[in-house]
Design a protein around this nucleic acid. Structure first.
Length: 714
DNA sequence: TTCCAACTGTTTTTT
DNA sequence: ACAGTTGGAA
């Protein structure tokens, strides 16, 4: 069994890769070669003849991970990726639904709604049903619907014991009807529909169950309930499921991820033994020791301890700043110092808990002329002009898509105002047809009627003209005919948008080329495929290392990446761990895992910093060091002081209120008999009514009445 | 239809 | 602080 494939694997990795045909759980710590194991496993299965490429089903969460897996697989084996089912949960569900749209009860050209589209659809629904959107906020309803779907619950299966939930349930049912009528499917629906397809179509289920003998799952700790059920169904009794995950890196419980799936998996799939990958190839010892020490404070863990063959390296640097300004200044200075040492900027990351924190940092970097790049902005396919263009394309494929029609019926403006639209909607409602069909009835007279007929004719013309054109030319033609190009040419700030629309043509051309090359077994027309691609893959905004710029991102966005040096800023109670997390069950444990992820991003050098005061939501806030700092062994830390001049930047003091004449003031350190030490961060009222808000080290943020609370100055 | 003022909600986010 | 959205007036 000597094959170059297995060379250089450590014993645990080797054991995982060469497991026999049985389900297995691989606990893969940060930097332990997880992706390598996953891809080598697939290559090994194929090379040793245990599986054919078409028998492999490998699923990831992000497109980036899927692409990387394909790329690395290509480097290991000269195999055709055609016929292999490797992709994201949603991508693979889409693929299956396209192939069996009839059985799934969907039109051949069903379109996919992204979150924004979905929210729009819900708002539309509420308006049509005359529901008060103050009482039932669309966002909340969206959350409710997606939550139900992720639990695998259709509207009629939802348990509602109070009137409010019953109403939500009713709206959920109406929403699904609306989607069905319009031939559109949201993200959660892709998975739920696919699950139901396999559940109800026995022949189909058997077919796929016997075909996919090897199912591999990446980032298993991030799966939600529905995804787990789907995998279980697809696996059946026969398939070997190779699940790779790290419970310590589960940071998406807030959006439905269920770490408990790992324990369930162990039981449901009769996992004989969990394989632990604990050797870390990324970081020096001190960094790993800190990460291990921190995560040991979590109660619910499967248990794991990272180690490295490297030395302990440098101590972890800790910096306390007086203000967020000073913190930013410190980081800039250190970045410049690292740069002088020859570390490329792209190898340095600046991490923070929440996006709002990036502003001060950006400001300081800008002033110091340090090039930087912020990840996490608006993505390509989410831009307004692109959404408009896609809406026209969607109408070409499926005119009943009311959401798309509403978006562009009067964009660019063509004289269809709110009133005409209302009449059109009235016709559609009374006839029970889509807006498009209502327009075809030609019942509207006057100017409005003419304008709407003009729009119908426009779309019809586009459809005819596009039928014979290659994809990129379809897009080009549509942009011209719709008047979008002309509109943005006239717009003052339209240059960027025009550029993006141009980029859309390029994207279509690139997609078409790729698509024709690897035409799969279950083809759909290129336009529909392109639209699915646009929804499912909104455009990269995950970090692509490379460009010579400092990398700024949230800790969440940094998962899966590594850097020579990492700055983790804003380590204050209330920020990290975030104050909202203390209200949620196991919230602080998730925050701690987040901190664990942050620490393990660093290869060689790690900076932790916090500020005594910080501007947040337009107010000065006073914080104390994060409890996570105290959970790190002091022996690994080195506190550093700014060696330059004494704090050069002092912001003009904001008006400091005093809580009556009591002598308490904001920023004062205090102690409470029950809650322990804390800092006064706000106050209101005077005399007997005076209350202060205190941020406690361990008890969170509380309002206390001075008359009763036995506060002591420290 | 367009523009501006007032108002709101600010943890993390992929598909 | 601030961006994004909404509602009303022009």
């Amino acid at each position: 069994m000597t094959t170059p494939l297995l060379r250089g694997l450590n014993p645990e990795q080797l054991a995982a890769v060469t497991l026999p045909h049985e389900s297995a759980l691989i606990l893969a710590g940060a930097g332990s070669g997880k992706t390598r194991v996953l891809t080598t496993r697939i290559a090994w299965l194929i090379q040793s003849g245990q599986a054919s490429p078409s028998g492999i089903f490998a699923v990831t969460f992000t497109n980036k991970a899927a692409k990387e897996m394909l790329a690395r697989l290509g480097a290991l084996l000269p195999i055709n990726t055609r016929g292999m089912w490797i992709g994201t949960f949603h991508g693979l569900a889409n693929r299956m639904l396209r192939a069996h749209h009839r059985e799934a009860g969907l039109p051949a050209l069903f379109q996919i709604l992204d979150s924004a589209d979905q929210l729009g659809a819900i708002k539309r629904l509420l308006k049509a049903l005359n529901v008060d959107d103050e009482k039932y906020p669309p966002k909340q309803l969206q959350h409710f619907i997606n939550g139900c779907k992720e639990q695998g619950l259709r509207a009629q299966k939802v348990e509602a014991f109070d009137p409010y939930t019953r109403k939500q349930q009713e709206l959920y049912a109406a929403y699904d009807e609306q989607c069905q009528r319009e031939g559109v499917v949201d993200f959660a629906e892709l998975l739920l529909r696919c699950h139901e397809l396999l559940l109800h179509e026995t022949a189909l289920r058997r077919h796929y169950q016997s075909r996919f003998q090897h199912i591999l799952v990446d980032e298993f700790q991030d799966t939600n309930h529905l995804q787990y059920q789907w995998l279980k169904l697809l696996a059946g009794e026969q398939a070997a499921v190779f699940a790779v995950g790290d419970d310590d890196q589960s940071i998406y419980a807030f959006r439905g991820a269920r770490v408990g799936n790992m324990a369930d998996f162990e039981r449901d799939f009769h996992v004989k033994e969990i394989i632990r990958l604990e050797q870390n190839y990324r970081s020096h010892g001190n960094i790993l020791d800190a990460a291990n020490a921190l995560i040991r404070h979590n109660q619910s863990r499967l248990g794991k301890n990272l180690w490295t063959a490297e030395g302990s390296g440098e101590p972890i640097r800790v910096f306390e700043a007086h203000s967020d300004y000073e913190e930013a200044g410190f980081i800039v200075d250190e970045v410049k110092a690292l740069q002088r040492e020859g570390i490329p900027l792209s190898g340095i990351a600046l991490l923070y808990r929440s996006n709002a924190q990036s502003r001060v940092l950006e400001h300081a970097l800008f002033n110091a002329a340090v090039p930087y790049r912020v990840y996490g902005g608006l993505r390509f396919f989410e831009r307004q002009e692109i959404k408009h263009a896609l809406a026209y394309l969607r109408l070409i494929g499926n005119s009943d898509d009311d959401g798309a029609l509403l978006r562009v019926l009067n964009f660019p403006a063509r004289g269809v105002g709110a009133r005409s639209l209302e009449s059109l909607q009235e016709i559609a409602r009374s006839e029970g047809v889509s807006l498009w069909q209502a327009a075809q009835l030609k019942r509207l007279g006057g100017k409005a009627g003419v304008a709407i007929q003009g729009f119908s004719a426009l779309v019809e013309n586009m459809r005819e003209a596009c039928a014979a054109l290659p994809l990129a030319e379809q897009v080009e033609h549509m942009l011209e005919q719709s008047g979008l190009l002309a509109h943005y040419k006239n717009e003052k700030e339209g240059a960027d948008r025009l550029e993006n629309l141009n980029e859309l043509i390029n994207a279509a051309a690139a997609f078409e080329l790729e698509y024709s090359r690897e035409a799969g077994e279950e083809d759909v027309d290129p336009l529909t495929a392109f639209l699915s691609h646009a929804s499912l893959e909104a455009g990269e905004h995950q970090a692509i290392a490379g460009q010579e710029a400092l990398q700024l991102m949230t800790v969440h966005a940094a998962k899966g990446l590594e850097f020579h040096a990492v700055f983790l800023s804003g380590l204050e109670e209330g920020l990290f761990p975030h104050e909202n997390s203390s209200r949620e069950k196991d919230g602080v444990e998730e925050e701690r895992r987040l901190m664990y992820v942050a620490i393990t991003r660093a290869r060689r050098r790690l900076y932790l910093s916090y500020a005594d005061s910080r501007m947040l939501h337009g107010q000065q806030r006073y914080g104390i060091a994060s409890r996570f700092l105290e959970e790190l062994p002091p022996s690994l830390l080195k506190r550093i002081n700014r060696d330059s001049a004494p704090q050069p930047m002092q912001r003009p003091a904001t008006r400091a209120e005093s809580a009556g004449a009591s002598g308490w003031h904001i920023g004062q350190a205090v102690s409470h008999p029950k809650f322990g030490p804390g800092i006064i961060i706000n106050s209101e009222g005077r005399g007997a009514d005076a209350r202060v808000q205190v941020s406690f080290s361990h008890a969170g943020v509380k309002w206390l009445a001075l008359e009763y609370a036995r506060l002591e100055a420290v």
